[in-house]
Amino acid sequence: MSHDRSPETGGACPRRPPSRWRTRGPVPPALWLCFLVVYPVASLVFRLRYRNPERFPRTGPVIVVANHVSILDPLACARLVWDCGRIPHFLAKQSVFKGPAGRILRAAGQIPVARGSADARSSLAAAQADLAAGNVVVIYPEGSVTRDPDWWPMQARTGVARLALTTDAVVLPVAQWGPQRVHDYHAKKLHLRLRTPADYLVGEPLDLADLRAQVRDGRPLTGELLREVTDRMMGAVRDQLAELRGEPAPTAFASRPARILPGDLPGSAA
């Protein structure tokens, strides 16, 4: 049997990774409909630039943990996940799951997050089931666009840590920078410019094996533990954001707003 040869080493080339169409698996009709809208719009609005996309797992369950700088983040982040050969499933506030659009989103595998402890637990269970099926779940742990005036991450909600510690999913920190140039949430202004640069840095997966083993052995999911893990995740994202921006990150997270504001993602599952 003949083998392809590497011109650099003269040895056998490593096996090519499976095609992106294969790793995405079956694409339901509702998701095709979303794709036909999101892909061209994201291509027109953003000039997407990826760093280290090879770190994105091509198979298996993945929790993407990202910072939140614009209401347009899901548009660009969906392209990142799709371009890495996976299908994104977002945790999104329940209010967007209304009418025909809501039915399409549900059929496309997106997960609503509702306010209230019982409903939030239901959202968490849905995300756990999605990961158990080997899918990619995208979470913005801040719950809404950051209120930090310089766009650094604010203190995150801890539901993402509960999800990470109770599943075996790869936890992948992703930093993004650029969508806020198109929609400035703080100023409530839309600056519609085509091909605005949007940069994404895919970090190394976080190693939570020791803490997961402790939880399986009976360690309770205390607020202190959930806060520790959440801050570890968002600390990685913040450091990656500093790399994207080329400037030092603050040493602390910005405070959350004292009250729920428009754009907030309610529920502890986020």
Rank of each mutant, 00 (worst) to 15 (best):
P220T: 05
M233K: 04
Q180C: 07
V170R: 02
K188T: 12
A236I: 00
D199F: 10
A242P: 14
Q214N: 06
A169D: 00
E224P: 05
D199G: 09
K189C: 11
P179Q: 09
A249V: 09
D199R: 15
D231P: 04
E243Q: 14
L226K: 04
Q240C: 12
D210N: 09
L244H: 14
E243L: 12
M233A: 04
A254S: 14
M234Q: 01
H191L: 09
Q214K: 13
S255N: 11
F253G: 03
K188P: 08
Y185Q: 15
V237N: 03
A198W: 03
Q180G: 09
E224R: 14
V174R: 03
P250D: 03
H183G: 01
V171D: 02
V171S: 05
T222M: 02
K189R: 15
D184C: 10
L206G: 05
R219K: 10
W177D: 15
V170F: 06
Q240Y: 13
R232P: 03
D210W: 02
R181S: 09
W177L: 13
T167A: 07
L208C: 07
L226G: 04
R195Q: 13
R227E: 15
G178W: 04
R232W: 05
R193A: 13
P205D: 10
R219H: 02
D207L: 10
T230A: 03
G203H: 00
V182S: 12
L226Y: 02
D231W: 07
R193K: 15
R232I: 06
